[in-house]
Nucleic acid binder design. Structure first.
Length: 937
RNA sequence: GCCUGAGUGGCGGAAUUGGUAGACGCACAGGACUUAAAAUCCUGCGAGAUUCAUACCUCGUGCCGGUUCAAGUCCGGCCUUAGGCACCA
């Protein structure tokens, strides 16, 4: 069989002419199954080889469910608005719809060529006025419910594309499409308040069957964080500002505040002395693009305003700075800085020499009753030239430590350290690099038989010269002073306190871990969680602040300065009011134009003079000329498939109630924070309005992986590793392509294309077709492959159900291998097998069903084969016999064998006997039907 | 830096949830059929040692350690890689 083009054409025509896959949407008598693919953007390139992967997977599920007696909804459509069609229009002067229609036709032809069982009567195009009428209608509802607003705001403006982009369309400060630079710019924009649904969008994730990685991605993207808003008064003024923090427990450690450069208070509180410097800084920041502010701006910058804030818990005056590491768009645009416990604040404080106050310390060792308290130091002394550290080796009397000691009364930590270093090691020419975070340490001193709890301050010194004085040691101090390298320290310093101090010294920075509060009055002694809760209450009781939840998610900018999108159905009236179109005026149709190009930062529709100028009730007005973003139409299309021709409402509620949610939604993982989030938002909104019957539209979501080129790299024209599906179908047939793409590996993994692999898949298809034509179909029950058949039905059914198509195919190959050298098969098994294969290879199975098995109807609705679990069980089994966990023999057992029989069989094996000879048998472990393990000594 | 995955023969990948690692396929090698080729069928195929050849033995699922009679699978610590986020307070 060289190819299957005739057979495939024959059945594709049959399905189409007989409308085999048309769904009777009103038939509620059977259970429903809604299998949905993410609809494609009909690009000029046509289908690529990645499309059929996901589409085949859903098609398999749809076909199996039909045979299992479900009423299946399996539609397809096109996400037809988009940039390439617009660029085509600009270039040729033709309406983008001609280009789009042409592409849609190509896609449809290709999809039909692959044999997908779509109900084409439900086809949708988002660019069809019959469809976008309802996109506009939903927009209108959102507008009326105040979830869409026109606001003046900083947006991502892309000069090259001449339009505003949403956050998910900007990647590293460049446009997703084309990679052009994106800058911040203030513009009047339509904004959809997705943030109002942030909680629902996070919380509902618990209820749906999605990949955990995708859920996590959405959670992170929404970025909910719990914290507090705290109000700070500006010293000597009536002004105050509010900061957001997730760590209100560290308020006693706040040593300065930072306002974002755009903060409204900046101009009001900056003192005359600092005006020039502040203004200069603000100007610099505003000139920076998003790109410069993020990726190029690792080094923190900022300026002092000259003003001070009052810390509400202790009335301390702390300086107010402005810095662009504080974002205007998150929280309140102002922070309290706690450099001891926040990395960013730490960097900034170090750079500008601001105070650092530790309010949390780590606890090491195990607490004990009746501990004696004392204050002490651990000194790390570093020799830069030799890259070595000064240690004291107590050998078996305490191991390797750094210099340590107890602080005497009236002595500072640094003085103590200098004294101890001199006494214990004799070195005197040292200088302090850094004071390290304090540690709370519990230990037991053997020589004194006492438990201690010490407050230890770490001090990091460098040595300047070898100048050394005589050590001053007590009689019991017997140790060696040794310079050692990092490796030795990591291996030999076991004491937790000393090792932790060392870690602080090599890795200076903020202490962000949990610990015990210090220097924090009423929080002292509490851990992080308790301290946060206590502080919440304190703030609220005293009116200093309140609990607050913040989100990283930004509102959805819902306008593009483009032509080829849904017109926004509003008119800006002469008197400044905004008028939404009446339902009877929908759809608002895109006008045909002579010039599709945008001019001077305006939207293309600004050129449609006649279209945009309107008079409503005697008042003049101008239509909104920006259009909706590409993700608008795809945010509700799954609802429209259920009732695609309804011109009274977007979809009938009773139908939605029966058919929603989507039982299986399949598409690429790249849509996690774009399409999927927007679609969930709209559907949740429609649910709240009582217009959609379910909160979450997609009950189960599965991502297909990417198909890579034969070289393991992403397919691209420039790399010349693109595989064309048309060519594959021409060479091997649609069934072989479908089979191969499912056999390549797990559906959601990225997999390289192997040209030999599809040949192998075709060989299997050939084999099935050839063998079924050769084999005699026996009408009576000849059970010679009974076990294999039932095992195959079980495995394939279960693997399809879990979408493990590669292993299902493997089992069908095993079944076919079993038929090698056989010349007959009984009818039940033959028909059962063909049904199992049908979802993957629908064409040749229809053909075999018809010509070999002699049926006149389609196989598509035949009953899915059953298996008998008793007939899948092997009576005889080969199991391994291990001696001390190593396989030494295999024995044949009968599943009815009892343990004694199995033991007896195992101990008869020569090789087993050889390994246990002259050894004592400790025990024999027998796991029924699995393994025997003989443990010897 | 943070959050997810992933790491198994020459290659794509299996492994019933702790129980014979490498199913199935590809590639490769040998054989049968054929005048020959293709197609098909049969056999072998992780590495190493040993042997005329078997049998048998050792090692082996990214690395190091642990738990267990038994670890690809569980625990701790790393490394590499893909994707996402990235001053989010």
């Amino acid at each position: 069989m060289s190819n299957y083009s005739e057979i495939e054409k024959k059945w594709q025509d049959y399905w189409e002419e007989n409308k085999v896959f048309k769904t009777d949407i009103h038939d509620f008598s059977k259970p429903k199954y809604y299998a949905l693919d993410m609809f494609p953007y009909p690009s000029g390139q046509g289908l690529h080889v990645g499309h059929p992967e996901g589409y085949t997977a859903t098609d398999i599920m749809a076909r199996m469910k039909r045979m299992q007696g479900y009423n299946v909804l399996h539609p397809m459509g096109f996400d037809a608005f988009g940039l390439p069609a617009e660029q085509y229009a600009i270039k040729t002067g033709n309406h983008p719809s001609t280009f789009t229609e042409k592409n849609i036709n190509t896609f449809k032809k290709q999809l039909k060529m692959l044999g997908f069982s779509y109900d084409w009567d439900r086809e949708i195009s988002t660019a069809d006025p019959k469809y976008y009428k309802w996109t506009q209608w939903i927009f209108k509802q959102l507008y009326l419910d105040n979830l869409v607003e026109e606001v003046d705001m900083p947006v991502n403006w892309c000069e090259e594309l001449g339009t505003v982009l949403s956050n998910d369309e900007v990647i590293n400060g460049k446009s997703e499409r084309g990679g052009y630079p994106v800058v911040r710019k203030n513009m009047k924009q339509w904004v959809m308040k997705i943030t109002e649904y942030a909680d629902k969008l996070i919380d509902n994730l618990d209820e749906i069957d999605w990949p955990s990685s995708t859920k996590e991605l959405e959670r992170n993207w929404i970025g909910r964080s719990y914290g507090a808003e705290i109000s700070f008064k500006v010293s000597g003024t009536d002004y105050s500002f509010v900061v957001f923090t997730t760590r209100c427990d560290t308020l006693f450690g706040a040593t300065y505040c930072v306002l974002s450069p755009e903060h409204e208070l900046v101009n009001l509180i900056t003192t005359d002395e600092y005006k020039d410097e502040v203004q200069k800084y603000i100007d610099e920041c505003s000139k920076k693009s998003e790109l410069e502010r993020t990726s190029l701006n690792k080094e923190k910058t900022g300026v002092f305003t000259g003003s001070y804030a009052i810390n509400p818990v202790n009335n301390k005056k702390i300086p107010i700075w402005i810095a662009d590491y504080v974002l205007a768009t998150y929280g309140t645009g102002a922070i309290m800085a706690v450099p001891a416990h926040d990395d960013r604040d730490y960097d900034f404080a170090k750079k500008y020499n601001l105070d650092i106050i530790q309010v949390l310390e780590e606890e090491t060792g195990v607490p004990h009753e009746n501990e004696l308290k004392k204050e002490s130091i651990v000194a790390i002394i570093y020799d830069k030239n030799k890259d070595k550290y000064l240690t004291i080796n107590w050998h078996n009397k305490g191991g390797r430590l750094f210099v340590g000691g107890t602080i005497k009364e009236g002595e500072s930590a640094v003085d103590c350290a200098i004294r101890e270093i001199k006494e214990e090691t004799g070195y005197t020419d040292i200088s302090l690099i850094e004071t390290l975070p304090r540690i709370n340490h519990h230990y037991y001193a053997y020589n004194k038989d006492k438990y201690f709890n010490i407050e230890s301050t770490g001090l990091f010194f460098k040595i300047n010269s070898d100048k050394r004085e005589k050590q001053n040691l007590d009689s019991d101090e017997e140790f060696d002073v040794e310079w050692v390298d990092k490796d030795t320290i990591e291996k030999e310093v076991k004491d937790q306190l000393h090792y932790k101090t060392y870690e602080y010294s090599i890795n200076p920075g903020a202490m962000c871990d949990d610990g015990i509060h210090i220097n924090s009055e009423f929080l002292d002694g509490l851990d992080k969680e308790d301290a946060i809760n206590k502080m919440y209450n304190y703030l609220e009781d005293n009116g200093y602040g309140k609990k607050k939840v913040n989100y990283r998610l930004r509102d959805w900018i819902f306008a593009r300065q483009r032509y080829w999108g849904e017109p926004v159905p509003v008119v800006h009236m002469e008197d400044g009011s905004i008028k939404v179109l009446d339902d009877s005026d929908l759809p608002l149709i895109l006008p045909v134009m002579e010039d599709y190009k945008a001019h001077g930062g305006m939207a293309p529709l600004d050129n449609a003079i006649e279209w945009k100028n309107v008079t409503i009730n005697g008042m003049k007005g101008i239509r909104e000329t920006s259009t909706m973003p590409g993700t608008a139409g795809s945010s509700w299309y799954f609802l429209r498939y259920i009732d695609p021709d309804n011109d009274k409402e977007f979809a009938n509620y009773e139908l939605l109630k029966h058919w929603m949610p989507v039982d299986l939604y399949l598409g690429g993982p790249e849509h996690a924070v774009g399409h999927l989030l927007y679609a969930r938002f709209w559907n949740n909104y429609l649910y709240d309005k009582g217009l959609s019957p379910v909160k979450e539209p997609f009950q189960k979501l599965v991502h297909q992986g990417m198909i890579l080129g034969p070289n393991g790299e992403k397919m691209s024209k420039s790399k010349g590793n693109v595989i064309n599906p048309d060519e594959m179908v021409k060479l091997y047939g649609a069934d072989s392509l479908r089979l191969y793409e499912m056999f390549m590996g797990p559906l959601s993994a990225d997999k390289p294309w192997n040209p030999n692999g599809i040949e192998g898949s075709k060989k299997f298809v050939d084999k099935v077709y050839r063998r079924f034509n050769e084999l005699e179909i026996v009408e009576d029950d000849t059970p010679f492959i009974e076990k294999m058949y039932h095992q195959t039905v079980k495995k394939v059914t279960e693997d399809y159900e879990s979408m493990s198509f590669n292993t299902a195919i493997s089992q069908m190959m095993i079944f076919m291998n079993e038929l090698n050298n056989k010349n007959s098969i009984n009818r039940n098994y033959a028909e059962g097998f063909i049904k199992l294969l049908n979802p993957i290879c629908p064409h040749i199975t229809e053909e075999i069903w018809n010509t070999v098995l002699g049926h006149n109807n389609t196989i598509a609705y035949e009953k899915w084969p059953d298996f008998d679990i008793d007939k899948t069980i092997e009576n005889e089994k080969e199991i391994a016999v291990q001696v001390n966990g190593k396989v030494r023999a295999t024995i044949k057992i009968n599943i009815s064998d009892n343990e004694d029989t199995i033991k007896e069989k195992a101990l008869k094996e020569d090789n087993v006997l050889r390994h246990i000879a002259n050894k004592e048998i400790l025990k024999i472990i027998i796991i029924k039907n699995k393994i025997v393990n003989i443990v010897i000594k």
